[in-house]
Design a protein around this nucleic acid. Sequence first.
DNA 1: TGGTTCATCTCGAGG
DNA 2: CCTCGAGGTGAACCA
Lengths: 275, 275
Amino acid sequence: MTVTSLHDPSHREALWELEAAFDRGDLVSVFGRCTVSYEGRAASDLGTGDRLLLLKPDGAALVHTDEGRQPVNWQPPGSEHRAAVREGRLRVVSTRTTPDETLTVRFSDVHELSAMPVTGGRDLAIHGTEEDLRTRILERPDLIESGFEPRETERPSSAGPMDVFGVDADGNPVVVELKRRRVGPDAVGQLARYVRALREELGVDEERDDPLDSDGDDAAADAAEIDGDDTAADADAIDLEVRGVLVAPSITDRAAERLADRGFDHVALEPAPEE
Amino acid sequence: MTVTSLHDPSHREALWELEAAFDRGDLVSVFGRCTVSYEGRAASDLGTGDRLLLLKPDGAALVHTDEGRQPVNWQPPGSEHRAAVREGRLRVVSTRTTPDETLTVRFSDVHELSAMPVTGGRDLAIHGTEEDLRTRILERPDLIESGFEPRETERPSSAGPMDVFGVDADGNPVVVELKRRRVGPDAVGQLARYVRALREELGVDEERDDPLDSDGDDAAADAAEIDGDDTAADADAIDLEVRGVLVAPSITDRAAERLADRGFDHVALEPAPEE
DNA sequence: TGGTTCATCTCGAGG
DNA sequence: CCTCGAGGTGAACCA
């Protein structure tokens, strides 16, 4: 474990160490007084100030100030770092293509430069994700509703893959959209696209009336069908209906409105059982 | 400008310097062998490895490996950092509330610890944003279409503020949604919500048929009206129609389909004139 | 490569 | 505080 660190190096010294560190594949941190400019998907300029520049061996570059989780400027992994001394300043340039982007950091003073060999240990085990939520539902489908049977996950459709596809107790197709946390109206739109795609695919025309303008009376009909015994299922067998279920811990008021408009249901569920 | 740097400090030395740096409001970087665990909105664990921990005076904490633009673990600004020596390890804990989240980094070895006073220079001037796109359109409304007149920006609606609201040459209300880069179907959904909200607000029932199911014949009618001379505008004056225009450099095929379904238009435009 | 969606998204504005 | 939408979103996955 060899950490190289230079205090107030000259630009020449800093340049040497930078290039040596690039060759070693070290993670480099440069702290100093600098300006930053970016040109690519957008363009930006940042005036003089003391900032920390991180240069990763995978090509990522991060400029951090004293505030914020996000770097004030950056370059994505896959970029190429180069350094030079120009006009009395240490210039670090990070470039990449597709899209063409360039980040330029010009140091008038380097206060400290460190090179660190960062090895392994990148395997992060994370829990409480949307995937956990899906697993939970597949193991206990009754959490959606009594009689629900999952049939497929990531089922393809013309609107993209739906999270969970299944059937309810009456045999109606059910599209389930999963969200690991509280959601807004966008999630309802997403669910609606899947339902719509499936209706088209199955040839369910929903008697041509507007699913957007439906006031929930379809949902009421569903409830009646579910509550009623299946002996009543005479002509309904052909006239099946595609239902939409949004699973999320909670939803915003606007999302609830849109859900009701579409005649969809909300099931309150967390990615993991509450402790 | 006083940068403090410790090479292979003892845990006690590191602890002292950490707390002094917290008091000074310095940006602290700790490079060493550690494990990381997080518990909050989700939960995660990261095994032993050499990583760089950044602790910002605003409460942000970042754990970086040798790869990726993103920190492998982090804590947002507003958190509180604390350090202690426990069980022969240097333990750094960063906590915050709403939501309750805790990041714990346990160092078995500290290879290097630096404390840096990062001052000012956070004002980033960025160009090529959606705001630039709006400015460009307000200065040259004909870029949308001939005869377009912007009336309001950020016009409120029940679906949220629409980017630009105006009228076309025939007096039809036009909702313009701006995107600074290539967009997918979600943007069409957003535009549709604004148009729908405006139709409801203006009492334009669109003869009760489904805007989702419209196959673009409305758009054809529009074109006829625009192309035709206005002498033909007899009964149309009362029956005005709310139009939707999506402004973006380009759109995906699926987005184009959804645009056509709704009878909306796409205008190809960049945030800034191409050089 | 592009298309689509998730994310401990982050961040800022507005009610 | 919540809600909403932008972002140089980033990152994963799949066709």
